[in-house]
Amino acid sequence: MSALLSLRNIWVEYGEKVVLENVSLDIEDRSFVSIIGPSGAGKSSLLRVVLGQEVPTRGKILLDDTPLPPECGPDRGVVFQRYSVFSHLSVRKNVMFGLECAQAPFTARLFGARRRAAQEEAEEMLHAVGLGDAMDLYPSEMSGGMQQRLAIAQALIKRPRILLLDEPFGALDPGIRADMHALITRLWHDYALTVIMVTHDINEAFSLGTRVLTLDKRRHDPHAPHRYGATAVYDLPLDRKEKPADLAADAAQSPGGNVDAATASSPSSITIDKDHNN
């Protein structure tokens, strides 16, 4: 069986500086891949390459065995840590944006019945992320957590093949973050998503992911630290059998939280595949 997304010998270099060296990955459909690693290890570069925001210096990326065009497209959705929503549009219109772009190439606006259909679809998506009561607010009137919910709804309305999350919950306080973990887990399950998430939070990486990638430099030249790039030094598939009490509790508190036991995992249940490491 072939993977949904394949990275083949990806190198990312900025002039002399090598950021990523020789990264090869296969990402399965419906997996939830967490990417961790120290600052400057190229986590975000890897995400930008997959997103199409950046073109790798060498190597190729295949989505469904076809090479990805070197720019962003609707097959890959994204949620950044900040600035992911349009501050000049209301919540509802933020979500309708994706539908309008596809259906009205010239005006990027819909009218009449098609507008109502798009509006209903957007509202349904907003209810799914728990923003049913905030449809007419502008993003500046909402909290950080609500803005991230909106950013997720906005991305999901396009039914992307892959959802990319760049430290999506990094700027949120711990309580809200737990809610968001429950939300993303539920959405991942309900919408059969494939997710790649970059995070600084190791707990988050392990509790949400079905697979954890650690990026770091394998070699280090103290006289020329920029000459070696990072690559995936650990690639841990997570064995998700136990039902962690804390995550289940979070899920139970969240509105409509029905986290399946199989979708959550805890660090205690990881099995590290030693042969996989190098």
Binding site: G77, Y83, S84, F86, F97, G98, C101, A102, A108, K158
Partner: peptide, 20 residues
Amino acid sequence: EQIIKAQTLGASSWQVMIRV
């Protein structure tokens, strides 16, 4: 991020110009 986001939502250059 906004320009990137708009493109992942399917926006063309023209749509980025007039809507974003």
